Computed example of a mutant assay.
Amino acid sequence: MTETPRTPEPAAVLTDDTPTPPTGFQNPLFVPPPPQPPRKSRKGVAVLVGAAVLAAVVGGGAGYGIYAVSSQSTVVSSLASTSTTGAPAANSTSGSVSTVAANGLPVVVQISNSQGLGSGVIISSDGLILTNNHVVASGGTFTVTFNDGSKAQATVVGTDPTTDLAVVKAQGVSGLKTATFGDSSQVKVGDEVVAIGSPEGLQGTVTTGIVSALNRTVSASDDQGSSPYSRSAGTTTTYKGAIQTDASINPGNSGGPLFNLQGQVIGINSSIYSTSDGSIGLGFAIPSNTAKTVAQQLVANAN
């Protein structure tokens, strides 16, 4: 089988009080559009890519880091972080990965259009789905594929480029199983976690790992200006308080959930650190408390 040429990834920077790794990050969850002649990557520069896959060819290379500002964007700075979907995370008790997978797969979806694909997590029985802004930044109508293979058209409800979060609404659905959100403030380094999504378009992929660090500040940008999801070269999104995990996260995972072993969502997978085109065990998730708060505000603003 002939491999699809890989498209260079956007550069980004990890900034916190720890030693700074080589410049460059990726936002992993999109598969590239029809292949273009590959460009030479900068020698010795690592890349941070978004977890979405800009795509035409599933199974192709990693995607751009995408942080476009939507016309529907809403910046959320404060909102009571009250849970509407479950109890706080209880990471001191252990469940099994197989149980988390069985319960988690039905609440995870694939989100795609002609530009690419990513993942999302169901937050209401009538089709509200939380994902990354860079997954849906192109706007328009998207196709949501559920775990059972059924499909529905979806439109963007609201986006917040500042936190790289968005909510979409699948049309004509009801009675969906919804995710339970845990309290991300209770997450500890060393906790076991499970990521579910569509890396490289392979829907329903389950990977495991641990929380390897907390409170990371990660900045990612598209420094090429060539992504259809990017408003302009240099557009940057900065995550604060990100959860770092070594669970395998690759292009196509963007917007998908990071579960604890109680099956609660404790983060939304958004970016990876990579020296080439894939994960090297440094993934970053937006904490569930932030994600939940922003999702509630986006939905409220749309009504």
Rank of each mutant, 00 (worst) to 15 (best):
Thr20Leu: 08
Ser219Val: 10
Ser185Asn: 11
Leu258Val: 10
Asp223Phe: 13
Thr143Met: 01
Ala220Tyr: 10
Ser83His: 10
Gly197Val: 01
Leu79Asn: 14
Gly256Glu: 10
Thr163Ser: 12
Thr217Trp: 00
Gly182Thr: 05
Ser125Lys: 11
Val299Gly: 03
Met1Asn: 13
Thr205Cys: 02
Asn113Gln: 10
Leu214His: 12
Thr131Leu: 00
Ser92Ala: 13
Val173Met: 09
Ile286Lys: 05
Thr84Asn: 09
Thr237Cys: 03
Thr143Phe: 00
Gly234Ala: 03
Ala291Lys: 07
Gln264Gly: 03
Asp164Lys: 01
Thr290Ile: 15
Ser96Asn: 08
Ser125His: 12
Asp16Phe: 04
Thr178Ser: 06
Thr180Gly: 08
Gly139Asn: 06
Leu105Val: 11
Gly234Gln: 02
Gly201Ala: 04
Phe181Cys: 05
Ala89Phe: 11
Asp183Ile: 14
Gly190Ala: 09
Ala137Val: 11
Ala195Met: 06
Met1Ser: 13
Thr93Asn: 06
Val109Thr: 13
Leu14Thr: 15
Asn301Val: 03
Gly140Asn: 07
Ala89Trp: 06
Pro21Phe: 11
Val173Glu: 10
Thr208Ile: 01
Pro287His: 11
Pro28Cys: 02
Lys177Trp: 01
Pro35Leu: 00
Lys151Ser: 07
Gly263Thr: 08
Glu200His: 15
Thr180Leu: 13
Gln153Ser: 15
Gln72Asp: 14
Gly256Leu: 05
Ala137Cys: 04
Asn113Thr: 03
Ile280Tyr: 08
Tyr273Phe: 14
Thr208Cys: 02
Val69Phe: 07
Gly24Lys: 03
Pro106Val: 00
Gly95Lys: 05
Gln203Val: 08
Gly263Leu: 07
Pro32His: 00
Asp246Phe: 11
Tyr273Gly: 10
Gly86Asp: 03
Gln297Ala: 15
Gln296Ala: 14
Asp16Gln: 00
Val121Phe: 10
